[in-house]
């Protein structure tokens, strides 16, 4: 049981970081960056490539993270800003960010070849045994990074002026720009943070999955699913979604059967969405949410008649 929890949380932390990368961008700009998975891939490939070329691990990782952060900002300017300037409510960014995703991963495949390559082992060698359950230090690090990311982001959001204005922008960009907030600066910051979070997820998972140009697809999808589970409104909730997805997948695998991890989390999600349509961690305490969810459900049933 403890093993399920630890394994689930450690992989869930990675899903959660990717989901958070989606959510931070969505929070400020109302855009879902479909190239988020590819930002993770950028960090993995650069780190792997540079460390293979003989650079020390810490330097390769720093360059990898810097690159994914920068790539996030580039995506904003190339694929998102022009679309939003035309029509703030259009969904055209779906196509342009997806286009960037295809370009990034094909370019990486051209540069590095399509086959998986080694990734620095980092902390994945060392094992820790807690109450009969084992966890590698790398996995422990993933959980720690996830906690730091959530706490750090929440403090930033609530305690700093920049964060507070960011909140205002997310609720009403037109009003915010009317009072003089520089919406562009916030969007750039959001895409940069998104790139950094996705890159961090990449460095954390790299020792387990190795480096492959097409990893972005895989983690983009799981991160997106985690985002859906947690709810899209708040980055911290997205992290919650990732952790839940991780624990549910590992739990389903252990207790139901190996392929149950394919469907079990989604069955849970469907039930959750029926009860609380705005995601598991949307707002308020769990009981109240459950009650109001059921209430709303019956109200809708009545209303539809």
């Amino acid at each position: 049981m403890l093993q399920v929890l630890l394994s689930g949380l450690s992989i869930g932390a990675v899903y959660g970081l990717v989901a958070m990368a989606f959510a931070v961008v969505f929070y400020v700009t109302r855009v879902i960056n479909f190239a988020t998975g590819q930002l993770l891939m950028v960090a993995i490939m650069l780190t792997a490539g540079l460390s293979k070329a003989g650079l020390p691990d810490w330097l390769s990782i720093s360059v990898g993270l810097t690159a994914s952060t920068a790539a996030g900002v580039v995506i904003y300017f190339v694929a998102v800003r022009p679309v939003l300037r035309f029509d703030r409510f259009s969904f055209a960014w779906l196509v342009s960010t997806l286009g960037v995703a295809i370009v990034l991963q094909s370019a990486a495949a051209i540069i590095y070849g399509p086959t998986s390559q080694g990734f620095p082992k980092l902390l994945n060698r060392d094992n820790l045994v807690i109450g009969g359950a084992s966890i590698t230090l790398q996995e422990l690090l993933a959980i720690i990074v996830a906690v730091v990311a959530v706490v750090g982001f929440e403090i930033f959001r609530r305690r700093t002026l920049f964060g507070k204005v960011g909140m205002a922008i997310s609720s009403d960009p037109e009003m915010a720009s009317a009072i003089g907030a520089r919406v562009t600066a916030y969007a750039v910051a959001a895409f940069a943070i998104g790139g950094l979070l996705a890159g961090a997820a990449g460095v954390l998972i790299g020792p387990i999955t190795y480096a492959n140009p097409y990893l972005g697809d895989t983690y983009g999808i799981t991160g997106f699913v985690a985002l859906m589970i947690g709810g899209i409104e708040r980055p911290a909730a997205a992290m919650g979604g990732g952790l839940v997805l991780g624990v549910l997948s590992v739990g389903a695998n252990t207790f139901i059967g190996s392929q149950a991890s394919d469907w079990f989390p989604f069955v849970v999600v469907v039930v959750v969405l029926l009860l609380a349509p705005h995601g598991l961690f949307a707002s308020g305490d769990a009981l109240k949410r459950l009650a109001s969810g059921i209430g709303r459900r019956t109200a809708t049933l009545k209303g539809a008649n």
């Binding site: 055209a92 960014w93 196509v95 997806l98 960037v100 370009v103 991963q105």
Partner: peptide, 17 residues
């Protein structure tokens, strides 16, 4: 593939419709 992706970006950026 690269060209395919670029077409997505270019068309949407210059012609959001």
């Amino acid at each position: 593939e690269v060209i395919f992706g670029l077409i997505f970006v270019v068309v949407i950026v210059f012609f959001p419709q």
